[in-house]
Simulated assay, not measured.
Amino acid sequence: MTTRETNADWPSSLDDSELDELDNYLRTHAQDGHLLLDGVHGLLSAIAVGPVQVLPEEWLPEVLHEPFSDEDEGNRVLALLAKLNDSISAELDVDAYEPILGEVETEGGPALSAAGWCEGFSRGIDLRAGLWEKRLADDPSLMETLGPVMALAVDEGILSAEAEFEKLSDEEYDDCLAQLPAVLAAVNHYWSQHPATEAEIDATSLASQSKQEPATPPRQRSGHWVH
């Protein structure tokens, strides 16, 4: 993890031991389709840069799936999640955002993987799917801004491509990974400059009431977090 200078204005992000603690909790309780640490970071990142507020009671069910063993465990896990959530917006404010990525074994050794982060980011968008889908359809610039995220998500099988899609080369994949902080900053800026209108919010709220859950469950991931 990158070493940071001590600064009173610097975001209070989780340190390595706290990240390990949250990672271990999520892995211990993970079942098929559950988000791990990189996925939770992707989820919260999408929410942080999204069009409207998403309350914890809406996103926590995407992360926690069973009762805590006791009150102390519950308070601790919720505190870690709250700190992780708060740190994302704080990091974006000072251009210090870094995605938490997975690390998978390949023939050439360990490699970074955006699969979990993209899965979480996709679920974060799904929480306000109507607003995202309408604006993406109406404003090609937003789709262009999200290009590197979309490319990674399609490459990892998180999203389906309308046309035939060639797998990214290792260099292209790494280039998309390197662009993630800039993409998140740009999307955050986009929604601050072009906020969702009352009409958009009302229309998508009505549509979401009749929307059904996707039929295909998300894939389970493996790997280790890397920040």
Rank of each mutant, 00 (worst) to 15 (best):
R4A: 14
R4W: 09
A8K: 09
W10A: 15
S12Q: 15
L14Q: 08
L14W: 07
D16P: 00
S17G: 05
L19P: 02
L19C: 01
L22F: 06
L22A: 01
D23M: 06
N24W: 07
Y25Q: 05
L26D: 01
T28H: 13
Q31M: 09
D32W: 01
H34L: 06
H34W: 06
H34M: 11
G39T: 07
G39V: 01
H41I: 06
H41A: 13
G42I: 02
L43V: 06
L44H: 13
S45Y: 05
S45M: 12
S45I: 03
I47L: 09
I47C: 01
G50I: 02
G50R: 01
P51Y: 12
V52Q: 10
Q53N: 03
Q53D: 14
Q53A: 10
V54M: 06
P56Q: 02
E58S: 09
W59T: 00
P61H: 04
P61W: 10
H65M: 06
E66C: 04
E66H: 09
E66T: 03
P67L: 15
F68E: 04
V77N: 13
L78A: 05
A79C: 03
D86A: 10
S87L: 10
I88A: 05
S89M: 07
E91N: 08
L92T: 02
D93A: 07
A96E: 06
A96P: 00
E98M: 14
I100D: 03
I100R: 01
G102K: 00
G102R: 02
G102T: 02
E103R: 09
V104Q: 15
E105P: 08
E105N: 12
T106K: 12
T106V: 12
G108N: 11
P110R: 12
P110V: 09
S113K: 12
A114Q: 11
A115T: 09
W117E: 12
G120V: 02
S122Y: 14
R123K: 08
R123E: 12
D126A: 14
R128K: 10
G130T: 03
L131W: 01
L131F: 04
W132V: 03
R135P: 01
L136V: 00
A137W: 00
D138V: 08
P140C: 03
S141L: 04
S141M: 13
M143T: 15
E144I: 02
T145N: 10
G147L: 11
P148D: 04
M150E: 02
A153K: 00
E156D: 10
L159Y: 13
E162S: 10
A163V: 08
A163R: 08
E164S: 14
L168A: 14
S169Q: 12
S169G: 12
E172T: 08
Y173M: 04
D175S: 15
D175G: 09
D175M: 14
C176W: 01
L177T: 08
Q179F: 11
P181N: 11
V183Q: 15
V183L: 15
L184T: 02
Y190T: 03
Q193A: 15
E198I: 00
S205T: 15
L206C: 11
S208Q: 08
S208R: 09
Q209S: 12
S210F: 10
S210N: 13
Q212C: 03
A215P: 01
A215Q: 14
P218S: 14
P218V: 00
G223M: 07
G223F: 05
